[in-house]
Design a protein around this nucleic acid. Structure first.
Lengths: 227, 227
DNA sequence: CGAGGTTAGATTGTATGCAATAGTCTCAGA
DNA sequence: TCTGAGACTATTGCATACAATCTAACCTCG
């Protein structure tokens, strides 16, 4: 087990629901579970605390934060604005590079990675592997954020997407299949340097994602088990 | 020197400009500077990394992140949506409590703290202590977020407000004096449980703050020294 | 003279052990 | 029986020590 990945494991356990909100996170227990010492565990907890996934109090300990279900609407609204911004900024940088601005070497690498993501998504859809599609979806959105060149926006996306992912964890959405092709349109606008178009497409894309989420929740609520 | 406060000290040094972007943050040096061991320093760096104030790479180290000046517009836009949400949610909870819902004991404490903040702001304005006003301003906005009862929104505000503060650090804005009375109007809407009014007032409030920021920047740009 | 490998130094990552604190349980007293 | 004070225990906070890794200088070889 790699030691720097402890944080990712705990985060995954929280998002997947293996660790329910309110669960006390004892450092020694986690250290033993992941076969490391308490030090990496503590650092992981600090990161998760900053992400809002756990709550910590000095000399008392850390507990899993309450689920963000109550905040779903607000989180989506913020995400719409945030991701519109990343798309707009990415388009702006694309245009700048086309005009012969400073040729960021990482740009081409990320841009190439996106092609791979999109192709992989097509394959995964053909094989109906929905969980993998969710991962690819996240990677696409983060890659666009990386193209924006703004560390601020990237770190905000990290924080908010963790919670959105948590929202979705209960039941995997099947919207991905229909929404996937929209990514290519967004990317085309980015490549063309069309800032407003890129922002609008991304905003609409995320907005539809939100609508699908709430439609799904409503359906779930009707179908009975509200526990 | 209290040891848990190391993170706050480093953050303050970054925001104040004592540590310029790109500066390498060596753990031993920081530990010596604050008279603690490397452990609390490392935990602080993890938090700052999650906040986007520091960039870290394994076995290489941490450097101060680039200033978010380029992202000012996007950050303000996100903040408008975010803080409108906190105000709306706070108003919603106020109405729920008035209707005899579960009486959160912390609510009254925070609500009382806000009164103190507002009064202190009046005093500070009378004495023209602008730096203290900026601190009180932050505390007001965080207190409203706390009334919203949403940990997700609070942690997002923490992250984004750190960057907004960084934006302002170069030259203290004087808008605070004019904007301060708006806080009472926002609070009144919250207390009355008027969700949409609270959200709109907060949105307009933050929006004017943004306008003031850009006006100030434009003025600075005209007045010559662009470095 | 340049390129590539190699070694030494510095820096980060982790483990162990001890100190400090909070929560709890017990027990005496009213 | 209830209340409060005090010690006890579990857990977190931190310092020291060692291992792993990166970077840069240097040396060798073409």
């Amino acid at each position: 087990m790699s030691p720097l990945v402890v944080g990712a494991r705990i985060r995954a356990d929280i998002i997947a629901g293996n660790l329910e909100p309110g669960t006390k996170l004892r450092e020694t227990a986690l250290a033993e579970q992941y076969a490391v010492s308490r030090i990496p565990v503590r650092e992981a907890l600090r990161s998760l605390e900053a992400e809002g996934l756990v709550e910590s109090r000095p000399y008392v300990g850390s507990v899993v934060a309450p689920s963000p279900i109550e905040d779903a609407e607000d989180l989506f609204e913020i995400r719409i604005v945030l991701e519109s911004a990343t798309a707009r900024r990415a388009a702006k940088r694309a245009a700048a590079q086309a005009d012969g601005g400073e040729p960021d070497p990482r740009w081409r690498a990320v841009r190439k990675e996106i092609n791979g993501i999109l192709d992989a998504g097509d394959t995964v859809i053909a094989e109906s592997r929905f969980h993998d599609l969710a991962v690819l979806n996240m990677r696409f959105h983060f890659a666009i954020a990386e193209l924006s060149g703004s560390l601020s926006l990237i770190s905000l996306l990290r924080q908010i997407s963790g919670k959105i992912e948590w929202l979705y964890s209960l039941n995997v959405s099947r919207r991905g299949t229909q929404a996937w092709p929209e990514h290519r349109a967004i990317l085309a606008a980015v490549d063309a340097g069309q800032e407003t178009t890129a922002a609008e497409l991304m905003g609409a894309h995320v907005s539809r994602s939100r609508d699908a989420y709430f439609a799904m929740m409503a359906e779930r609520a009707e179908s009975g088990t509200d526990e």
